[in-house]
């Protein structure tokens, strides 16, 4: 099963990214576990310097921006 983490402390962009991820997961019918990471020490495992960050199966794929739906779908499907 896919593991997706949204890194962020609850600012507007972090919530928007989380909603977007849920939407993509639902539309593509993927079996994915979506987690929210709000702990700074944990975030630094991926060297994140600007929220929000998106982690798919332990790899940071985007940071400091909200990727497009198409991008997220691509990351989740590969």
């Amino acid at each position: 099963m896919l593991n997706v983490k949204v890194l962020g402390t609850g600012c507007a962009n972090c919530r928007r990214l989380e909603d977007l991820v849920h939407k993509v997961v639902k539309e593509a019918g993927l079996a994915a576990e979506v987690e929210k990471v709000t702990d700074y020490a944990q975030m630094m495992r991926w060297n994140l310097m600007k929220t929000p960050g998106l982690v798919v199966n332990d790899t940071l794929v985007a940071s400091g921006r909200i990727p497009t739906e198409a991008e997220i779908a691509r990351w989740l499907k590969t």
């Binding site: 962009n13 630094m44 994140l48």
Partner: peptide
């Protein structure tokens, strides 16, 4: 540099570290 105060902490840690 694009900055919002919600990213102040990760940025601080990233710099200092």
């Amino acid at each position: 540099t694009p900055f919002c105060s919600c990213s102040a902490v990760p940025l601080f840690i990233g710099f200092v570290e």
